[in-house]
Design a binder for these strands. Sequence first.
RNA 1: GGAGAGAUGGCCGAGUGGUCUAAGGCGCACGCCUGGAAAGCGUGUACUCCGGGAGAACCGGGGUCGCGGGUUCGAAUCCCGCUCUCUCCGCCA
Length: 429
Amino acid sequence: MLELNLIRREPEKVKAGLRKRNWKEEDLAIVDRILALDEERRQLQTRLDGMLAESNRISKEIGQLFRQGKREEAEARKAQVSTLKEEIKELQARKAEVEARLEELLLSVPNVPHPSVPAGSTDADNEICKDWTGPLPELPQGARPHWELAQQYGIFDLELGARLTGAGFPVFRGQGARLERALINFFLDEARAAGYEEIQPPLLVNADTARGTGQLPDKEGQMYHVEKDDLYLIPTAEVPITNIYRGEIIPEEQLPIKMAGYTPCFRREAGSYGAHVRGLNRVHQFDKVEIVQIAHPDHSYEVLDEMLAHVSGLLDKLELPYRIVRLCGGDLGFTSALTYDFEVWSAAQQRWLEVSSVSNFETYQSNRMKLRFRGKDKKTRLAHTLNGSALALARIVAALLENNQTPEGIRIPSVLVPYTGFERISTNR
RNA sequence: GGAGAGAUGGCCGAGUGGUCUAAGGCGCACGCCUGGAAAGCGUGUACUCCGGGAGAACCGGGGUCGCGGGUUCGAAUCCCGCUCUCUCCGCCA
């Protein structure tokens, strides 16, 4: 949720941001409607405060009159307050109504994109910031996509998952399961070495938490909902981890706060189908290590760069070709100010797969969460929140399988060998 | 799932209808004292909204004692609902 102050001070900047997100001119009027409602709200508040002050004053007098034994005067004042009270009730109702409408409008305004966000409407307009300049893997004759390799080596089984649960729930087996676990441990160890506190959050969250990071109300359809308990399966560890500090006021010297966690992630992904979602390319449940930082507003873009470097380091160590893409206005998430995607080369599919998304939300999430810090000047300010995948497992596995296939089996990058306990995946395990 | 107790400021804790503008203590900050420190003494110490103001200074007002309603001229205090915590019982990896 955007800060009302920003809309009040710089409505044109907000409108320019919406234009970058390809909003139609006539829809920009929402900014003016917000400003009008805010003005109305403040006027109501001023009037209401005056009446409440009056009522408080008279009530105090009544107390004094009673103690002095002046019953009749006290009774007269009572009647006076009674009429005041009716007006107060009416004003309160109007104020609540105005506030509810204001809130609703505010929730429907996305974050203002960072100046560096390129114009554009689809992923074709995204800007490649760092392309892969090295050689792409050369595959042997008869190279196969990862879903075929999975069958050949018994790494994971989607048909089995479909029988147990439904489409999009892979069952990892044998060396495949061990590879998953190795990657998780590798990513967590790397995060810890980079100063992130390891978190094991709940996998189900309540509506307040889902609202804090912006999954509700706008991405409701993305999440699995447990109706009986009104809980949501997390689509990413970002949701519970960022909310750890919801409503907190953090001493400035504790910033930045760095947290990392491994969780399975659950996404409904309704309506997707076809060849580009085969295998592990898009599934309903996948493993991911997420890194989260809560940063000082003056330094959040340095933090973003640091997170990009961290993710780059992971991919370097895994020896995977990758490129970094800056999302354009049309592709940018609702709550994000700036997002970089990491894409790894999937040699058999001959395409780039998104394996990480690193974003700065500035105060968009923290405003909704009331996540603040206390500066050296004793004032409270909203902190900036950032997060990134480091990394999303399913597609990393897909790329590793395809890029490292040899006639003797699938080579494990040397950095992972201490974690897997084997150097190659082969039929004879 | 059943029974009971509770939720007050950064923390502990008092407070059963008006003087609560929330006692007292701890902690923290600043000052005095000291060669320096401790002790002692003094002062201060929540968040938020609205208005005034050039003002993130300051002044005035509103709201917040778990959350939401209600009773009352007036609620931390009385009533109803909810959430959470603790104790006991049941179930359980």
